[in-house]
Design a protein around this nucleic acid. Structure first.
Lengths: 219, 219
DNA sequence: CGCATAATTGAATGTTCTCAATAGGCGTGG
DNA sequence: CCACGCCTATTGAGAACATTCAATTATGCG
């Protein structure tokens, strides 16, 4: 169960649908914060443009992902949000959320859990990009994100986009994938990558899902 | 006002003091989650050890910082927490927090805001490490973290420790600082670094503080 | 069918990493 | 009080790796 599903139940029909075309801004840095978005389809990039025009994405929200979920506690946005593709989103006004927090503690708890999950995801990405070699980063990603059954993941969006999430140029990413495939570490079929050495989840179990508790696992 | 101060007021005397010696584990990956920590003094590193022994810190909590703040919504910890120095912490049991969430919506809101702040910090760090050159990373850090008055920051802990937060080896970090000082971009006095080119806050305004709203700023 | 963009590979360049070696600071124990 | 050991801070040199520029193929969309 995605956050969106869980959230929709609690928030009822409060979500307002909005659509944006590719390269359109949802909001810009410095704008007053208005509320929370949940991406229905398409993808939205959060970024800051430096003086030198250098840009690195803080976060890319895809189908089901929340957006500006932390900004609603701040008076202004600290980054730009720009649609990478045509996109539709559900919008929840800040005031409505705040009202819900006060009235419905289950809603607040759901939101707390969602923020906690996003925080763990963000820190995991940070950890990944701190690894020095391209191969280590790809392996870190695969080990954590691969499906336990099939041992494979589908990379969302384009490979080129994804490369920047690993802090790599797309060339380096292509080359690393090619090399790993040649070395027999992975198998590729388009955007689907299968990890062969079966050291799945060696680094950590999956992140908690919004649907709630998993049975505790053996130490 | 730090989160700890704000939080203590709300949580009253529920915080239990605990002390750990350097290199002692607060908890390990796979342990059942027991509650939230707030660091009083010292520093605590969150990490996962990979099969190859490769380790990159997910997060380093220092004086005033929360710890395992996201894990309380998960049945088990997803990483190890190890004291880098002798450290003392305040501990808040999970059950007490959950009870507070239900009873006191102001407490829940405070916690929401804290998680939101941590999330923005984590994403900012991610953005930083995605920059390709050492100089850009240092500049990104300085531009965002420098005090508006003095144009300087004090780097917490050792420079060596901090290098890994930038995703660099300590050698590369030392060299970059030396180079930037020679180029007249910064001035150094031990761990205090002053940014000279005065393009302060060009990238973004400071992150929101726990004490609440800042006046909105002009677009 | 043709354009725009992703995917891929090549070659050269540049930067960081790695290994090494030294200096300096701090605490402990003799 | 000083010597020793440990760790941080610092700089050097070479190797490894990613970036950059460039060119080609593949692919989806109008």
């Amino acid at each position: 169960m995605t956050f969106d599903e869980c959230f929709s139940v609690l928030a009822g029909e409060a979500g307002i649908c909005q659509t944006f075309s590719a390269n359109e801004f949802l909001f810009r840095r410095g704008d007053e914060t208005t509320g929370l978005y949940v991406v229905i389809h398409g993808s939205v990039k959060m970024m800051r443009m430096g003086p030198s025009g250098k840009d690195a994405a803080l976060y890319v929200a895809r189908s089901g992902d929340p957006l500006a979920e932390a900004s609603i506690f701040s008076p202004i946005y600290h980054c730009d949000a720009i649609a990478l593709t045509d996109a539709s989103v559900r919008f929840y006004p800040k005031a409505a959320l705040m009202r819900q927090f006060e009235r419905n503690h289950r809603f607040a708890e759901s939101y707390l859990a969602m923020l906690g999950r996003q925080l763990m995801i963000a820190r995991t990405r940070f950890e990944r990009v701190c690894l020095h070699s391209a191969r280590e980063r790809v392996l870190h990603f695969l080990t954590l994100e691969v499906d336990a059954e099939t041992h494979s993941v589908e990379i969302p969006g384009t490979l080129k986009e994804f490369a920047s999430e690993l802090g790599l140029t797309h060339e380096a990413f292509y080359r690393t994938l090619a090399q790993m495939a040649k070395d027999g570490e992975i198998e590729r079929d388009g955007n689907v990558i299968k990890l062969l050495n079966a050291s799945t989840a060696d680094l950590a179990p999956e992140l908690p899902s919004s649907s709630g508790r998993k049975p505790p696992r053996r130490k």
